[in-house]
Design a protein around this nucleic acid. Sequence first.
DNA 1: TTTTGTATTTCTGTATACGATTATACAATG
DNA 2: CATTGTATAATCGTATACAGAAATACAAAA
Lengths: 220, 220
Amino acid sequence: MVRYQFGGENELSNAPMSTSLLSKLQQDILTGKYRPGQKLTEQNLCKEYGVSRTPIREALRQLETDGLVENILNRGCFVIGFSEQDYEDLFDLRKAYEIQAVKWAIERITDDEMDRLEETFEFMEFYTMRGDLDKMLVINAGFHQVIYEASHNRMLRKTLMSYQTFLKYQGLNSIYGPNYLTTVLEEHRAIFKAFTDRDVKAGAEAMERHINRAKERRCE
Amino acid sequence: MVRYQFGGENELSNAPMSTSLLSKLQQDILTGKYRPGQKLTEQNLCKEYGVSRTPIREALRQLETDGLVENILNRGCFVIGFSEQDYEDLFDLRKAYEIQAVKWAIERITDDEMDRLEETFEFMEFYTMRGDLDKMLVINAGFHQVIYEASHNRMLRKTLMSYQTFLKYQGLNSIYGPNYLTTVLEEHRAIFKAFTDRDVKAGAEAMERHINRAKERRCE
DNA sequence: TTTTGTATTTCTGTATACGATTATACAATG
DNA sequence: CATTGTATAATCGTATACAGAAATACAAAA
């Protein structure tokens, strides 16, 4: 079974050029360039992104399965809107999977992945001290991503990655706020400790607390 | 926010004809017509399904985001294989979501949905008595689907529906076996009772037991 | 003014065409 | 015999073409 390598924007290790088109569309929808309910005309998108209809249509099909647009026969693609309830729900869905991820990760993590987790956590400590918010956003995401990798489950990783992307562009994972940086660090420390202790139960509990707090402060 | 209506094969209420192509491909991959690692050549698929490359490619893109095939740049699509571990894991992933679904469903179920759940459960009792296995497979799936609907969360519903499809074609939700029919009925009865009692905690526990048992007997 | 019918335009769904990349076959060379 | 280089064929990615459905515009009628 082929596994993808840990990386930044691109999902696949050897992504086709059209993946960048998909990412752009995804970003433009999630950041609100295209409003919920708005029709995405293929020809307009062609002009907008400078490609022909074929790659546009393929990207739209992927966005459809991702649940970002809805395709109605012979009428076109429409941007799907999300309610306040949807946003709240998302934290619970994510929580369920993050807990499962940390459980499996603690059981299955390789030495190499453990090294990366430790390294990432140390970066987090460093940038928290420095108070570098932008770097922290990236490192925070990276910390969770190492856990996704270490869970060694493709579906779980894929889903949680897409949740991250969703939250990122919706601006729901900001860590701005009073002392959020240090409290988030402590939450992550508890998770990291569960890894060094190889304590699945503690890891699950720490992750649950982490996401619950995140939901409260609407951030990560 | 538009919601899809409860239905059989087709995900969307007004599905384009090409959705049937997607379903066929999905089925053929999951039932093993195309083996893991096998390359899916577009022209071969064109001949096989009697359409041109465009709809084939769009279907492949959707299968890619569904995680059934992997697309490698300029080399083509390859069927993804699943390990024994993957199959086991799937029950835990599904469990996490089914529990969340039943929690939300008990809180959010409408009168109309409650009627459908009751009706479905009564069918289950009837066909269990009759020992009609084929009907039970459909009704079982339907019982869960009503819960997905009642959870009123699009993502959750979509994911659990795709898990059902996966399990169906992989033959992992058979209820064949000694007394499985009656034990499954009792598990579902506990879930149904949680709805009539409006007891979220009991519902979650009943669902957890149900999926745990399902994992044990590798069925639904 | 509102509604209804029709003609025109627009857009989607599908098929086909073309350039670029990759795989294959086979001869030349060590 | 194994290996490398080249030519050919197969296949992918993208652009374009065409048929049919839907939206639009507008005139005619209530």
